[in-house]
């Protein structure tokens, strides 16, 4: 082979590789954003560092597994049910554990959430064992191919649903009465209360909504990956990174943060080192802190 031909060949290969990385990042970013939004709302409104977020995500995946595999429930019906149960679980956690700690300081609530996280994760292992489970999906097994690029139908579906949920949350927060109460609570809790906003209800609703989104993410990604008890840990650490990137309480910030993280991971592991893939998010956080400590889309100054 002539040297010129080799060069051209390699260039085409690397362009294909770049495009494939980009496509992977966009698909991945959608689910990251979904994970981040739920957490950022809880964070922003309730000032609670929610360590159960990852476990609610795993819960969504396990509900999906239990409904689809042994019970044979329709895939799409199961998806809706998983999200609904996630909302209920979130409301239960809030009412049971957090509502009584409303005036407690941040480390008290956080310890409670850490305790709940440990207990939940191990309950999952007790109930379903540590063996990985997979969920069958109704999509064609052959991927969608476009030139040298390809993506599975399942991931495309995940991306579409995630985008819908993100748009829905954005609408809910910015254009509804509930959203107004939410934003008012975020800006000034005491004044909002004086103006007639039921803070306790806003809290429960926020936690339920955030948990519903996490459960939806788990139910969507369960069929893409496999379902294991420790799956929530990785998801939670990504969600934390996204919240910092985007800024506290910002839906837009979490969305953009999710995509930035996905691109950093894909390109970083593709061109720097695959071992540091999961470090990218944290490295980004440190860079952001150096350059712009308020986060990319902070709604409120975070230096007290």
């Amino acid at each position: 082979m002539r040297p010129g031909a080799l060069d051209r060949d390699q260039r085409r290969f690397s362009l294909d590789q770049l495009l494939q990385h980009g496509l992977n990042a966009i698909i991945l970013g959608g689910t990251y954003a979904l994970l981040g939004i739920g957490l950022t709302l809880i964070f922003g409104i309730m000032k609670v560092v929610n360590f159960t977020h990852g476990e609610v995500y795993a819960f969504g995946a396990y509900v999906m597994f239990a409904l689809v595999m042994p019970l044979g429930v329709n895939f799409f019906v199961a998806l809706v049910l998983a999200m609904a149960l996630g909302i209920l679980l979130g409301a239960a956690i809030e009412l049971l554990l957090l509502s009584r700690l409303r005036d407690a300081d941040i480390d008290t609530t956080m310890l409670v959430m850490i305790g709940a996280w440990i207990a939940m994760q191990n309950t999952e292992q007790l109930a379903w064992t540590g063996v990985a489970h997979s969920i069958k999906n109704p999509f064609p097994p052959e991927p969608l191919v476009w030139g040298a690029l390809s993506v599975s139908w399942n991931r495309l579906f995940v991306f579409a649903v995630a985008s819908l949920l993100i748009a829905g949350t954005y609408y809910l927060v910015n254009w509804t009465k509930f959203g107004k109460a939410l934003r008012a609570t975020f800006q000034d809790r005491d004044t909002a209360a004086l103006m007639g906003v039921r803070i306790d209800r806003v809290n429960t609703a926020t936690f339920a909504l955030g948990s519903g989104l996490a459960a939806a993410a788990g139910a969507l990604l369960g069929p893409v990956f496999v379902v294991v008890p420790t799956m929530g840990d990785l998801a939670a650490s990504k969600a934390f990174a996204i919240v910092i990137l985007g800024g506290l309480g910002s839906v837009v910030g979490a969305t953009v943060g999710g995509f930035i993280l996905a691109f950093a991971e894909e390109l970083g592991s593709g061109y720097i080192s695959s071992g540091y893939r999961d470090a990218m998010g944290f490295v980004l956080i440190i860079l952001i802190l150096l350059v712009r400590p308020t986060g990319l889309f902070a709604l409120k100054e975070r230096i007290s």
Binding site: K47, F240, I244, L248, I285
Partner: peptide
């Protein structure tokens, strides 16, 4: 210490995580 509260919490976790990943890789 450029940040406080919940942010500081996550920043401190991130720091430990970065160190862990460096030790790992």
């Amino acid at each position: 210490f450029r940040v406080r509260g919940a942010y500081f919490v996550i920043v401190s976790i991130s720091f430990a995580e970065v160190v862990r990943l460096v030790a790992l890789n």
